[in-house]
Amino acid sequence: MLRTQFEEELLNLHNQFYEMGMMVSSAVHKSVRSYIKHDKTLAKEVIDNDVAINDMEVRLEKKSFEMIALQQPVTTDLRMIITVMKASSDLERMADHAVSIAKSTIRVKGETRIPEIEKEISDMSDYVKKMVDNVLVAYVKTDEKDARTIANMDQRVNEYFNQIYNSSIKNMENHPETVVSGTDYLHVATYLERIADYVTNICEWIVYLATGKITELNTNHDE
């Protein structure tokens, strides 16, 4: 009897983590859309929704501790609970960066914008969102191979970042009126790069879930 109840709780934990992941994916997407479209209402939605994401992380963590304490799970089950605990804290940090992007949207007041850089930011964010969505699927399937592939996508994110960085700096040097926007672009690109780093962390937890080994997938980790 206990075993089936435990399995049900484990499945619930799994599903709640996935649900939290979908909320975070949506936050990332909306925050960048609000930024590019100067949509302060959408930005505010991202900021308001963050409370629900934080609550979800707290609930997941509490439930995880409870299951470890009461059921004393072993090997695979324990790995799954630890993965949810660790990966949900990565998700929560990703959501914090989405909030930072949304706050940039609200801050921007009629500054001179640079459309071609905004296009690059939009492309970068689509790519990062694809990583977020893919990592959730890899988690559900406990797919180690996919996790490693997704972690490698991070190199492309770094290329996007460098491109945006160089364009912004060049623009700010040549057109002083773009300094405020340019600085903001650098921030937004940094937040997106960080989100991709947290996706890579989750990839590492998926590899751990599949193999029981803690593996460094990308060496250039920023905390």
Score class of each variant (00 low, 15 high):
residue 137 V to Q: 07
residue 167 S to Y: 12
residue 52 A to P: 10
residue 223 E to A: 00
residue 98 A to S: 06
residue 55 D to Q: 13
residue 43 A to H: 10
residue 105 T to P: 09
residue 65 F to Y: 15
residue 54 N to Q: 06
residue 140 V to Y: 08
residue 29 H to F: 07
residue 192 L to I: 03
residue 17 F to N: 09
residue 189 A to T: 06
residue 183 T to A: 11
residue 62 K to V: 12
residue 92 E to S: 09
residue 156 R to P: 04
residue 134 N to A: 00
residue 11 L to N: 11
residue 12 N to R: 12
residue 99 V to N: 07
residue 118 E to L: 02
residue 218 N to S: 01
residue 170 K to T: 15
residue 90 D to C: 03
residue 78 L to M: 07
residue 53 I to L: 03
residue 191 Y to D: 13
residue 8 E to T: 14
residue 214 I to A: 02
residue 40 K to W: 05
residue 123 D to E: 10
residue 154 D to F: 00
residue 208 Y to G: 08
residue 49 N to Q: 14
residue 71 Q to D: 10
residue 111 E to F: 02
residue 34 S to A: 13
residue 82 I to D: 04
residue 56 M to K: 13
residue 99 V to A: 05
residue 76 T to G: 10
residue 223 E to W: 01
residue 12 N to Y: 13
residue 162 N to C: 10
residue 121 I to F: 02
residue 150 I to V: 00
residue 109 K to E: 13
residue 116 E to V: 12
residue 95 A to D: 07
residue 33 R to T: 14
residue 200 T to D: 00
residue 204 E to D: 02
residue 108 V to G: 10
residue 141 K to N: 07
residue 37 K to W: 14
residue 5 Q to T: 11
residue 121 I to W: 00
residue 81 I to F: 07
residue 48 D to W: 06
residue 108 V to D: 11
residue 80 M to K: 13
residue 177 E to P: 02
residue 100 S to L: 05
residue 93 R to C: 07
residue 110 G to H: 07
residue 201 N to M: 02
residue 79 R to M: 00
residue 192 L to M: 01
residue 92 E to K: 01
residue 156 R to T: 11
residue 203 C to I: 00
residue 148 R to I: 01
residue 101 I to A: 04
residue 95 A to I: 03
residue 218 N to T: 03
residue 2 L to G: 14
residue 153 M to W: 02
residue 75 T to Y: 03
residue 96 D to F: 08
residue 26 S to F: 08
residue 187 H to N: 11
residue 94 M to A: 06
residue 31 S to G: 08
residue 26 S to R: 10
residue 199 V to H: 03
residue 1 M to N: 15
residue 184 D to E: 10
residue 203 C to F: 00
residue 7 E to I: 13
residue 65 F to N: 14
residue 72 Q to P: 04
residue 178 T to N: 07
residue 192 L to Q: 03
residue 102 A to S: 09
residue 15 N to C: 13
residue 25 S to W: 08
residue 212 G to F: 02
residue 146 D to N: 08
residue 36 I to V: 15
residue 161 F to E: 15
residue 61 E to T: 15
residue 145 K to C: 01
residue 55 D to K: 11
residue 83 T to N: 08
residue 12 N to T: 14
residue 110 G to P: 08
residue 75 T to M: 02
residue 181 S to G: 10
residue 72 Q to I: 04
residue 26 S to D: 15
residue 96 D to A: 01
residue 77 D to I: 06
residue 60 L to A: 13
residue 216 E to W: 03
residue 66 E to G: 15
residue 137 V to W: 04
residue 56 M to A: 15
residue 99 V to F: 05
residue 52 A to N: 14
residue 186 L to F: 11
residue 181 S to R: 04
residue 4 T to V: 14
residue 89 S to C: 12
residue 26 S to C: 09
residue 79 R to Y: 00
residue 172 M to G: 13
residue 139 Y to A: 00
residue 34 S to V: 09
residue 22 M to P: 11
residue 193 E to M: 00
residue 127 Y to C: 01
residue 204 E to T: 04
residue 145 K to R: 04
residue 216 E to T: 06
residue 7 E to D: 15
residue 48 D to P: 07
residue 67 M to S: 06
residue 201 N to P: 08
residue 101 I to V: 14
residue 106 I to R: 02
residue 17 F to W: 11
residue 19 E to H: 12
residue 152 N to Q: 11
residue 70 L to E: 12
residue 70 L to H: 11
residue 125 S to I: 06
residue 183 T to E: 00
residue 190 T to F: 04
